[in-house]
Every structure is written in C-alpha cells, then in structure tokens.
Design a protein around this nucleic acid. Structure first.
Lengths: 238, 238
DNA sequence: GGGAAGCGGAGGTCATTACTCCGGTTGAGT
DNA sequence: ACTCAACCGGAGTAATGACCTCCGCTTCCC
C-alpha cells in the first residue's frame, strides 16, 4: 500500500529485488500500473469538476476500473488526494513567488489574482483544499501555510509602488479570490468567464485612484442566463 | 392538514363550525396553536442559521416539540418554508422599490446593496431562496421574479445620474450580493461584518470615477482569523 | 367526566458512502 | 507452455442520516 503511493518508502527497507531501485518505476504489473494511471486521471477530472466530496464509486467509474481496484491502489481517498494535489497547491505558491518578481508590482498583483483564481475556478478540488483545512493534513497543509506571507508581500509591494490602496491587508487577497470563485460557481454553466467582469470591477476599487472605469472583458449576463443558473444551482454542495 | 397551513382553505368547504370564519384564527386547541408558533420560531432560527437543508429533527428540537407534532402541523417541510418566507422575499422587493425612490440614485443603490446583503447574510435560508429555484415554487417564486426588473431600474437610474459606471447591467447586482454573502459565509465566526469591507471596495469600483479610496468600515482580518475560518469552513454544505 | 384532539418519540424505510471479500482472470518468469 | 502470485471486478456490508409513520399516553374543551 505504501509503496504504491509513496515512491520513497520502498527504497528504505530490505527490498529483495534491487532492480526496483534502479528503475524509476515500481515493480508493478503492467495492468496494475495502467489502472493506477487511469485512476489518477479519472480522479483528477472528478475532483476538478465535482469537488473533493465525489464518491469513490464515481472516481472508479470515470477511471473505468472496479472499486476493488481503486481501493487496492489507494487504501484511502485521503491518500489519493495527497498524491494528486501535492504539487497543485505548491504550484500556486510558485505562482505567487513569480508574480512577486514582476517588474511592475501592480501588474504582478493583478496577474496573480487572475491566474490563481482561474486555476481554482477550473478545479473545484483545488479551491476546497485552499480554503478549508478539512483535507490535506500533510505536505499540502505546509504549502497552504506558505501562501499567507506571500499575500502580504504582494500587497505591500504594490502599496509601496503607490498603485494599491493603503488600507488593504494580505488577508484580503484570499477573500477576493473567494468572492470571484463564488461567482464562477454560480455562472459556470452559462458564462464560465463571468467572474472576470468582477475581477476588473474589484481591481478598479483596489487602485489608489483612477479616472474612468477600466473596460470590462465581457458582456453582462442577461436575465434568462441568471434564471438558468438558478435552476441548476445547488445552494451549497453538489 | 390544509386548514392548519392554508388559512383560505377552511372557508371554502362546508365547514360545520361557522365561528371558524368569524374569528381570525383557526379553531386550533390552545396547546396546538402554541406549538405551531414554537415551530415557526424554531424553524426561523434554524433556517437562518443552518440554511434550508436543516433536518426536520433539528427544527423540532429547537422548537421544543416532538417530531410527530411537527409533521401534524406541517405535513411537508416545503409548506413550512412557504409559510415562513412568503413575506421575507416580498420584503426584499419592497426594499428595492423603496431604494428606487431615494432622492439620490447612487445612495439608493448603495442602500439597497447594503441592506439586501445584510438580510441575506443574517438569514441563510433567505439567501438560498433568492439564489436557487430549488425551493419555493409558489408565491415565493413570483416575488423572486419581480426582483430582476427592479435591479435594472436601480442600475439605470444610478447611471442616468452619472454616478454608476455605464457598463453595468441589472444582473450584476445579484452577483455582487452573491460575492459578499460568500465572504460573510466564510468569515461569519471570526468577523461577521467583514463583508462590508468588500462592499466598500466594490462600490469604489462601480463608481464612474473617484480620486481617493473610500474609508473601509472595519479593519482587515489577521492571518490567525483566516486560519480559524478555514478550520470550521465546510467547503459547501453544512 | 368523557372523548376528541393533540403529544412525543421509537422506529421503519430508503438513500448514500466508504470500504471488504472472494471467485475468476491475467501477466511474468521459467 | 505452464504456473501461480498478483490483480481484477463488483456484489455485498456496515454505518450514517434524513424523512416520515404509528401508536400509546396526555391534555384540553364542553
């Protein structure tokens, strides 16, 4: 169980088959390895679309394998989540660091908000990992903790440049993303990009000053779209 | 069953007891009427706090009555929802009409956003009724449909006055509220008023122009508060 | 004081979800 | 080719939770 999910574990003990260490892959039978990949792919799609609460049956169904196979590869759903999102959250941290190095501090901040939100809109599971400590107790939690200081750095850098209003704190950045993701959750079916309208509006509110409003990147929803969004909107939950 | 929930029904049929029509109240035994009130009160609190998905058991528990009693008064949870929220949604419509009559169009718009959001933040059930057609098929749905045109009127009036940027549509108003409520849901335990920060920021983004940022009505959350909010945050659902 | 209306809550039913078990199958080494 | 351990699939289990019914006892009203 451990060796299928944690590549480092096998190397430690007295492994009878030394070739296992030489090759990068586990000594996993071909069909088993193929199914493992299928599960990873199916789970990634399922988590992105439905969130971390998808049933194991749904994941197995999407992967095209039996439930028994699923549980042999990942004894716990939690282990699968760790395996899948270990780097995804880390990538968000990297994005923040990268945007912190942008020449224009304001542009860096905007770029971060835009891309970080886009990723979480595209991946419900990622959003849930970022905004709740319910899952991901291991490495994911560590990455999550690295985000806070980076928020603060992005904010103060943009403030020092005189672009961002002075009364904003690092913690506001996360809440801004939360707001945008909520809009995206609501309008997903009708206008998946609608959240960008509100990012633009929010940014106009976050600037120290401006004359005219920035151009909105896409048209508003019409009432019929709102009505349809309300139809298939589960207040909270799937 | 009907006569306990629908006051009009009893008057129609050949009711043997004519006094039932004379008095405003149903010929309901005193303890029964008392329990009915308790259920209404308990349910109002439960819906406000936990949303429309609260279990009937929880409602009965808060009301201090048995489940049997609950079901005798309200054969269906849906009937209870109708009875409770019939006017609440209507009150939102009235609020919009009232704000439409404000001397200053911009102030009217701001006032509406502020109060409408505050009511939905204070009452999860109300928010769910407004943003989803899952519940409330009768009179509530009718009231919900009256809101759209009023949004449009509020917007165009503020735009004609030159205060609101021209590229906003009526439908944006609902989504702005949705964003603010999402923040409130997240920060509820730590800083119940935090959403007002973002209302101010959004309004600064919605103005046609401004020089300096408006003062934010309360301080930002600190990282520890965010962390605690993440702890007790159920990604979606209770 | 009598009887209808009402009370409470144990428990039935049904749906959902994480997870197990085992008879049959497949792949890898000889 | 042959063998057997590893693997596969999915019916089945156990736990949970939600809605709602039923019925023996209580309370009110006349």
């Amino acid at each position: 169980m451990d060796e299928t999910t944690n590549p480092d574990a096998a190397a430690a003990g007295g492994d009878p088959d030394e070739r296992a260490q030489a090759g990068a892959d586990r000594p996993l039978r071909r069909d088993a390895e193929r199914n493992r990949q299928r599960i990873l792919e199916g789970a990634a799609a399922a988590f992105a679309e439905l969130g971390l609460d998808v049933t194991t049956d749904e994941i197995a169904r999407r992967a095209g394998v039996g439930i028994g196979t699923f549980y042999r590869r990942f004894p716990t759903k939690e282990l699968l989540i760790e395996a899948l999102f270990e780097d995804r959250v880390g990538k968000l941290v990297e994005l923040a660091e990268e945007c912190l190095r942008a020449e224009d501090p304001w542009a860096g901040l905007v770029s971060f908000l835009d891309q970080a939100t886009a990723r979480q809109v595209a991946d419900r599971g990622l959003k849930e990992l970022v905004f709740s400590t319910a899952h991901g107790r291991a490495r994911i939690a560590a990455d999550r903790d690295r985000i806070g200081p980076l928020f603060m750095a992005l904010v103060t850098r943009a403030q020092d440049a005189g672009a961002l209003r002075a009364d904003i704190a690092g913690t506001d950045l996360g809440l801004v993303q939360l707001m945008l993701i909520s809009v995206a959750d609501f309008t997903r079916e009708e206008a998946p990009q609608a959240w960008r309208r509100f990012l633009t509006i929010l940014l106009d509110g976050l600037r120290t000053s401006r004359d005219a409003p920035s151009a909105l990147p896409l048209p508003p929803l019409d009432p019929a779209q709102i009505a349809r969004a309300m139809e298939c909107h589960r207040p909270h939950g799937r």
